[in-house]
Amino acid sequence: MNDALSHPAAPPYVDRDQHSVANHLGMWTFLATEILFFGGLFTGYTVLRWAHPHAFAEGSRHLEFWIGTANTAVLLTSSLFVALADLAIKRDDRRAARRHLVAAGLLGAAFLGLKGFEYFQKFQEHLVPGSGFDAHGAQPALQLFFFLYFLMTGLHALHMLFGLGAIGWLLRQIGRGAVSRERPDAVAIVGLYWHFVDCVWIFLYPLLYLIGG
């Protein structure tokens, strides 16, 4: 591994451009797998909602409309900051890039805070599926709605946590100069992930919060 001298780019690559294209292609391929990972859940959700429209509408009414809406706005804003960070690093403004990433990270944390608050609320209302679940007189499929609610938002939150970790790592890399105008790929790659997780929420929002009817 120590003969990188004979090759200007990292081992298997001929040049940086090839490396960069490979990185992007790799990330997009990974995102395709993520679409299908969440896609399994969305398929399950669709089937059950089709079978129990009333229970799902009932479940949706138990969620806090304002939290869902606010969280969507928070995530969209964080996405803007990530896109700005990408722009900044390509213009060799590392300070601005870091500033934007910090803003995006804080917004991500705010999202998780609101989410946690909503989880706590549901816990108090006995709407966490399991033996303590109280259907409030509705039919048993209500529990399925909340099962899906917790699983979908939980997996999304887990992805957010990974995203926050990636942003932290990125801040450090930019600080060390390992990510810079010459090697800006990491920001775009992490950005792709962050935007994608945002898109998952863009669909979770109407499917969970807006179907109360």
């Binding site: 079978a51 129990h52 009333h54 229970a55 039919q139 499929a141």
Partner: peptide, 12 residues
């Protein structure tokens, strides 16, 4: 699954 097919004129 009583609410799957609700008879016309009745509540679920």
């Amino acid at each position: 699954l009583p609410t799957k097919q609700v008879v016309a004129g009745y509540q679920p």
